[in-house]
């Protein structure tokens, strides 16, 4: 018999319909934190600016304070000195919260991961729980948008359940 383990931060009593509505709202208003580490952050800024415009899918409100943000985009190389800061920022965010590891550096250390290296943390998953990984060095803004849409699908548990979104992805939807 499998014992169901409650996820940290999840409520003890759950209401199915209310949860669906809340998840729908959460998925469609993912406010990222104004926070970048390296060159991936430049692509993240480009994704927020006029050509790509994250605000179209409601994810363009970059909040400067971790208290008001929903998703942390770890964009860039995580130096060992920066790791405690990232952990602290993650702890300061209120639940429910999500994390996107953007770029090869934050997935596995990228080009900086070799034997006996002493300077970087090889992977954001070593310090914070990562929901979505976006490969690339750096990933293009389209890739970031795809990652955010994948995170939305993860929150609503399937693209078909995201009733508010007005388009269907041609491929790659998590269902």
């Amino acid at each position: 018999m499998e014992k169901k383990v409650r996820e940290p931060g999840a409520p003890v009593v759950q209401f199915a319909l209310l949860d669906d509505i809340l998840n729908l709202a959460r998925a469609n208003s993912l406010w990222p934190m104004t926070f970048g580490l390296a060159c991936c952050a430049i692509e993240m800024m480009a994704a927020g600016a006029s050509r790509f415009d994250l605000d179209r899918i409601g994810a363009g409100v970059f909040r400067p304070s971790p208290r008001q943000s929903d998703v942390m985009i770890v964009a860039g190389t995580i130096a060992k000195k920066m790791a405690p800061v990232i952990q602290m920022l993650w702890d300061q965010m209120p639940n429910p919260k999500w994390c996107i590891a953007m770029g090869n550096c934050s997935i596995s250390g990228g080009p900086f991961a070799y034997e006996e290296q002493y300077a970087i943390v090889p992977g954001a998953h070593l310090i914070v729980p990562v929901d979505i990984v976006i490969p690339g060095c750096p990933p293009r803004p389209e890739a970031l948008i795809q990652g955010l849409l994948a995170l939305e699908d993860k929150i609503t548990k399937g693209e078909g359940r995201n009733l508010l979104r007005r388009f269907k992805r041609v491929s790659g939807g998590v269902n």
């Binding site: 509505i21 809340l22 729908l24 709202a25 959460r26 469609n28 208003s29 600016a49 006029s50 050509r51 415009d53 605000d55 179209r56 899918i57 409601g58 363009g60 409100v61 929903d70 508010l164 979104r165 007005r166 388009f167």
Partner: peptide
């Protein structure tokens, strides 16, 4: 800023702030 702003959540993003509020 030469971008459309909220677009996909409801027609022309009209439901965007409701989603934000519920969130």
């Amino acid at each position: 800023q030469l971008r459309p702003g909220p677009m996909e959540v409801g027609p022309h993003g009209l439901l965007q702030t409701i989603a934000d509020g519920v969130k």
